[in-house]
């Protein structure tokens, strides 16, 4: 990831989680990311304009429920349907993605976005993603979070 992109992406992720999901982040060095002992959800959105690429958000599965509860103003126990958690994660990614794009590039440019997709991944896959150079690592309240930003010229 380009050095000049890092601070912008960290700021956007910080603002969206704080303002929309009421979760507070600290950026984290990759070597400090705690071990996880559960499956994770990876959700991704593709963007296409003068530049094409993908933004992904990867979080432990239990965090999805917290996100849904925070967005809806409910207690976690009231989120009975796991799909609501994944839906919440997709919506947060949707907002993060478009805010990253308008922060990195000119606001007059037009980008098309794909519908967010989510997949469940295991711990091994999580560790592989952590090691990628395009990935930034965060702690969001007590949850480790990965943000992957991939761009390429058309």
């Amino acid at each position: 990831m380009k050095e000049e992109y890092k601070n912008i992406i960290i700021r956007v992720v910080d603002e969206i989680f704080e303002d929309f999901a009421f979760m507070f982040q600290e950026s984290l060095l990759k070597e400090d990311i705690p071990e996880i002992d559960e499956n994770c959800i990876k959700t991704s959105i593709g963007f296409e304009g003068p530049v094409i690429g993908t933004v992904s958000l990867v979080v432990p599965e239990t965090m999805c429920k917290v996100l849904a509860a925070n967005l809806l103003g409910f207690d976690q126990e009231e989120i009975l349907v796991p799909a609501k958690g994944i839906d919440a994660l997709k919506e947060v990614l949707n907002i993060i993605c478009s805010n990253i794009i308008t922060s990195l590039y000119n606001e007059d440019l037009v980008f098309e976005y794909s519908v967010p997709k989510a997949v469940r991944i295991d711990k091994e896959e999580w560790l592989k993603i952590v090691e990628k150079p395009e990935v930034l690592t965060f702690m969001m309240d007590d949850f480790p979070v990965l943000v992957e930003f991939i761009e390429s010229d058309i």
Partner: peptide, 8 residues
Amino acid sequence: SSEGSKTK
């Protein structure tokens, strides 16, 4: 929407 393009 999360759309941020002024043009759009």
